[in-house]
């Protein structure tokens, strides 16, 4: 699992990346009440806002950590947005993307680096 400074995580299996927001982000947001996941077929560039997550107190854009084409959004979150709080780094994933440049994955932080980054925040 790799991480961004914007608190997204990515798991890469073959050329398919699964993307979500980190446990730290979910905790900071508080109770998530709504998630808008991207439609399959949408082409995203690393750094693009490609999903929205809302808590009662904030609405935040989620940025694509990696470029590619969306193949699936997590439809479970439509009815059960609280999954993002309960299981942020697994069942609370946002989207799966077929990546166009796998090398972007390697440029992201690993967990110790992300944790070190959080410590500086």
């Amino acid at each position: 699992m790799r991480f961004t400074k914007d608190h997204e995580w990515v798991v890469l299996e073959g050329d398919v990346a699964t993307i979500g927001i980190t446990a730290h982000a979910a905790e900071q947001l508080g109770d998530v009440v709504f998630v808008e996941t991207p439609e399959p077929g949408k082409v995203v560039k690393a750094g693009d806002a490609f999903a929205v997550v809302e808590s009662v107190k904030a609405a935040s854009d989620v940025y694509a950590p990696i470029s590619g084409e969306v193949i699936e959004g997590n439809t479970v979150l439509g009815d059960a947005p609280e999954t993002v709080n309960a299981d942020p780094e697994n069942g609370g994933w946002f989207a799966k993307v077929r990546v166009s440049d796998p090398s972007q994955y390697d440029a992201l932080m690993d967990r110790p680096a992300y944790e070190a980054f959080l410590a500086t925040q």
Partner: peptide
């Protein structure tokens, strides 16, 4: 649903 509103967004 006030996150749609200007004082937050």
């Amino acid at each position: 649903l006030s996150t749609r509103e200007q004082h937050i967004r």
